[in-house]
Amino acid sequence: MLISVKNVNYVYGSGTAYETQALKDINLEIDQGEFIGIIGHTGSGKSTLIQHLNGLMKATSGTIFFDGKDIYEKGYSMKQLRSKVGLVFQYPEHQLFETDIFRDVCFGPKNLGLPKEEVERRAKDALREVGIDEKLFDQSPFDLSGGQKRRVAIAGVLAMEPQVLILDEPTAGLDPKGRNEILEQISMLHREKKITVILVSHSMEDVAKYVDRIIVMNQGELMYNDAPREVFRHYKELEKVGLAAPQVTYIMNRLKEKCLAVNTDATTIEEAKEEILKALKQRSIHLPGNR
């Protein structure tokens, strides 16, 4: 077990008029190498939860274990934890500050106290991984397009070579092409470097395509924590909390209701296509008189 969250509660502004309980008794386990999606309505506590995982926020009660060690124990090095659990915030391009891209990406590994060559190697690798051309390295980060800025910012965290990469809505505000490119690159990192990825998102479609497991948050509580197909079975309940299953799930369910004996577990368009073709084929076998 890489990360294990035990009975974590978090209250914002406790003792004031603005008191809100953002996390309610969260229990969660995350294994090495998993690709996890966290989904929830606005204000459901997703951002709050992920900031606990690298120690930026301290739980009001409960504990978190990383690699078997209690991170709230006295003497536990938060700095080391943060180098192992990389967190990319929502709109990460707002944190860029250096005069050129390359230096900005070097900031993270430099803070780890690595030698200069190692810092530069990591920065180069990270920028390559997110698809930033070497020609752009000495440009000001403020002269880039929105999508490019986003990649540079993600590279800034990747350059620390974390074991776990957490991304808070990395595709917010991007066009469909930019969105797909970033998600593909993240998915590739997961496959090739075997890093554990936690992806916070609003889009069920995105999540369904890439992740092994979905965590659904609702008003600070963990509502579902299961494989995508299992979670999407509850599409009616998801609707009640302001979410929706991927469109494919709806189509498959309607088909099944109306006429066609399809398996409704398909979560992506490709799977759905296979399922429908299979069901159609079976039907033509059973009804030999059909055209």
Binding site: G86, F89, F97, F107, M160
Partner: peptide
């Protein structure tokens, strides 16, 4: 928010002497 984002990248706003502290404020 920015402070947290930089801390997540290993920035340190607390330790060091005055010059180091001032420098650490740039990010």
């Amino acid at each position: 928010k920015i402070m947290k984002a930089q801390i997540a990248r290993g920035a340190d706003f607390e330790s060091g002497n005055i010059v180091q502290k001032a420098k650490s404020l740039v990010p």
